[in-house]
Design a protein around this nucleic acid. Structure first.
Lengths: 238, 238
DNA sequence: GAGTGGTCTAGACCACTCG
DNA sequence: GAGTGGTCTAGACCACTCC
């Protein structure tokens, strides 16, 4: 077995999610976990730090690792989940409609966002997301063609991410996001069921691979009444 | 000197922020840093992991630690910054107006948010934030009185956080946040310069101390045209 | 004082990149 | 093959909590 600390992490996550250990209770001590998994303390600590980072526990010096109430924030665990995962978790009816899938040179300032050469061809994918019968999210993706050479409508209808990570084996590692509110555009009106909303919430994401190359820029435009963003921020003292 | 890894972290942050090492370049290798700081590799790695977590570098196996372009997202580094720090960084004229500072029993569901006993007295602080001559943020804070026994208008005008962390020596360690868009309330209209906006962006924050006690609930209501939220999300594979 | 987590060491082996 | 980061070990000492 490789990645012992990930194994321990997953076991503990399972215990917490199944409610075997309740919020407020403490995990077995690091020493105990060492014996339990027949491993060294630093390895156990790596697993525990991952739990802490992801909001499952809080480590308290002199006491132990206290299990937090993770349930309230059970879904969108900040950040990189794709629409498909998200809608699966919500258990709602959902559908993706592909409006555009094209390959071309960057237009309208996209090359600035992607910091790529002007002759770098980009995939442009425009999709709206229907949940509960209403089209409430408009996603515009721009993806570097030198990194993802092939795309199809069926891939765009399914999940870009599972294709990129699964089929292509690329390793998405982090994203920078900005959230703002903007006036609706003509495009929004065309592709979304806006009711009488005049503004949309816009999430601009810059997605990077494990080798630190920026390969995708996404603009995700949400009808405000259906928008929700959840964040778990741990203090890292300077 | 204690906390060797924090020392190394701070040194490297300084180097990056001063532009001594440019985005795209790599840091000295872990081995070099070990010699340079006369320390063990795990300690160096702790410092580097902190840099990676905070978006300064990306570690690439077989190559090195690549410096990222941190400048584009230089401010609100996700999460726990207070209004005062934020407005200082933006370098704008700002002012805090205290509308209410009272101590009482929880009303209107606040005790649910704070998961405290119904007889737990709470501080209620209502403040609006003026930037560039306009009141654009309304902050409503609820704080457990058993943890923060004393508050004053002058503290609320300055910074709650620096008082709580500095004077009281409490250790704020993480926060859970939810961002949604809501219709304006009468209170919003009273305390904010809303122009003709009918909606506000609401950030609900649950703030925890290092010993995992939830001690504060905050509702921060922003005029949508001035709202911005920045997030750096690193993938932690399950 | 016993038990907890926080930091640190000095090694080891592996997987990966690049010339 | 040389250099890089990723994982892991078996210890050590410290700071803190709780009884």
């Amino acid at each position: 077995m490789k990645n012992k600390f990930l194994f321990i992490y997953n076991e503990l996550v399972r215990l917490i999610q199944q409610g075997k250990i309740h919020p407020g209770e403490t995990l077995p001590s690091e020493h105990d976990l060492c014996r339990q998994y027949d491993t060294s303390r630093e390895t156990v600590r790596k697993a525990l730090n991952l739990l802490a980072q992801n909001g499952y526990i809080q480590k308290v010096r002199g006491k132990g690792s206290v299990v937090l109430d993770h349930s309230k924030f059970e879904f969108p665990v900040s950040g990189l989940t794709s629409f498909k995962e998200l809608s699966n978790q919500l258990g709602q009816d959902f559908k993706t409609i592909v409006h555009e899938l094209s390959l071309g040179l960057p237009k309208g300032g996209v090359e600035k966002h992607l910091q790529c050469k002007p002759n770098q061809k980009l995939w442009k994918v425009v999709r709206s997301r229907e949940i509960g019968g209403e089209r409430i999210i408009l996603d515009k993706d721009f993806i570097r063609e030198d990194i993802v050479p092939e795309l199809s409508t069926s891939i765009a209808e399914e999940s870009l991410y599972s294709y990129i990570e699964g089929e292509l084996g690329l390793d998405i590692s982090f994203a920078k996001k900005e959230i703002v509110v903007e006036r609706v555009t003509q495009e929004d009106q065309e592709y979304l069921d806006l009711l009488d909303h005049e503004q949309v919430v816009v999430i601009r994401s810059y997605v990077y691979l494990a080798d630190a190359t920026l390969f995708q820029y996404t603009e995700s435009r949400h009808r405000p009444d259906k928008f929700q963003f959840v964040d778990f921020a741990r203090r890292t003292k300077a």
